[in-house]
Design a protein around this nucleic acid. Structure first.
Lengths: 119, 119
DNA sequence: TCCTTATATGAATATGTATTCATATGTTCT
DNA sequence: AGAACATATGAATACATATTCATATAAGGA
């Protein structure tokens, strides 16, 4: 069955389906939240940092060595991860130790790897 | 006053830890693959598309209605999702029906939502 | 106190990307 | 064949963001 709308040139949609799907759609907070996490994990540097921290707690200079990147770049990305509460930190003298703040990250890795191996 | 350092100014890292972590680090393919998926999911429009498709198979104009966005914008994003093999499509006359290509996506949603609710 | 080291951060630059606009492709109907 | 519709796509624009550079902060040692 077809329906018409004069404001929009699209008229082929199935309005029952559309209503059903809209009913169950995510609210804007959920969309924003999901977008934020995935966007944060959608960067090679942050993926490497998170994966390293999934093994052990590390200080900034450990991470600099592991990633072979500048201290500044690593610090900037750690701030992003901190803001999203994906990592937490602990100060000891002049060193700052980082670790994962949420074990769900590990499951996200697992699912992500499962996907890329599935293709 | 500032002086020049020979090669690298970092010297505080724990080399045992670093070696251990480097040993277990992801290879570049895995990093690239994970980055790609998460980057792809790190956009509100694509999140909404994927979530809608996790409910039912839908044609492009259904999606246009559900998302209340232009047909062009939706098509562009569908192409991104198709390239990453996150969705598949089936043609029927002049309509094109899209659906999820990989059920791992649903688990990614679940983990992502678990994370944002955990905070 | 002065110097060195560990980390953080503002500004600038370079690169990526989402949407829009215009148009192309392909299908159905008359 | 021609018109109408569903979808796809190239180019342009606008906006976001990753890294670098320079410098700031903060802690420890001489």
């Amino acid at each position: 069955m077809k329906f018409f709308s004069d404001s929009c040139e699209i008229q082929c949609f199935n309005s029952e389906k559309v209503a059903r799907v809209k009913e169950n759609s995510l609210n804007s907070e959920e969309v924003l939240g999901l977008t934020e996490i995935f966007k944060t994990m959608g960067d090679g540097t942050r993926i490497k940092i998170l994966h390293a921290l999934s093994q052990e707690e590390l200080c900034v200079c450990d991470l600099v060595e592991v990633l072979e990147m500048s201290q500044s770049a690593v610090s900037h990305q750690l701030r992003v991860l901190r803001n999203l509460r994906l990592v937490k930190h602990r100060k000891e003298g002049k060193m700052v130790y980082y670790s994962l703040d949420d074990e769900h990250i590990i499951n996200l890795f697992a699912q992500g790897l499962a996907h890329i191996r599935h293709r």
